[in-house]
Design a protein around this nucleic acid. Structure first.
Lengths: 109, 109
DNA sequence: CCAATACGCAACCATTTGGTTGCTTGTCAA
DNA sequence: TTGACAAGCAACCAAATGGTTGCGTATTGG
């Protein structure tokens, strides 16, 4: 579950939609998660595997069904780290950017 | 600057490193940003273009140099939306996940 | 028991991605 | 003015991605 895996897992709209679906109703089976997606079951399986590898989804087998559960913790971790990193001057960020784009060799370099 | 563009832009370690570099020192030229990356200038240019398309980096031409500036706002927006969406039960998320994985047909379905 | 259901596995394919090289353009400085 | 430097453009390539199909396996309900 490297950080890169989480970023890459989140970079696909289908996978984000799968997370959304699990957020609405947790513990869905593979078949249920396939509904509404215009692709084969195997394609959805591949996406779910990527989400599992990123530790965003955990599974449990129940009989012949496979239940999927959302794990939002990696999302929180990444958000924390990345937001905190750039937090400095969050409010003034737009102003600073504007000035930088207008300013001609403003001396900061 | 769709949300998908931002996610995809952040999904590559080279691009995240470029954002880091700009965070350390804003307004770097293309040549400066290339230093320390074991790839051609053109490869870095492509990554920077993706960051520009995602509105994470803005540029200004200064003579024969091109200056690059970080725009952290899209990161904040995405973090806000996604963290808020899954915020519910953030603290208990891990416990709930554990129980779901252990529990056999806990009746919620 | 056995047929249907739910899922797994693997080969295959088209497109996208991430990189390269070669050449061109524009700007500065000696 | 002209050579060197910074960056742009375009063609090309290998590998990863995202999808497909066909078939195999295990579980369950009638």
């Amino acid at each position: 579950m490297s950080m890169d895996d989480v970023f890459k897992a989140l970079a696909d709209p289908v996978r984000r939609q799968l997370l959304d679906s699990l957020h609405q109703r947790n513990g869905q089976t593979l078949g249920e998660l396939c509904e509404g997606h215009d692709m084969s079951r195997q394609a959805v399986t591949k996406h779910l595997t990527i989400l599992e590898d990123a530790n965003l989804v955990a599974t449990r087998k129940d009989g012949r069904e496979k239940l999927h559960f959302l794990n939002p913790l990696p999302i929180f971790e990444i958000a924390d780290r990345w937001v905190r990193k750039f937090e400095h001057g969050r409010l003034r960020a737009l102003d600073e950017l504007k000035k930088n784009l207008e300013g001609k060799s403003d001396g900061k370099r």
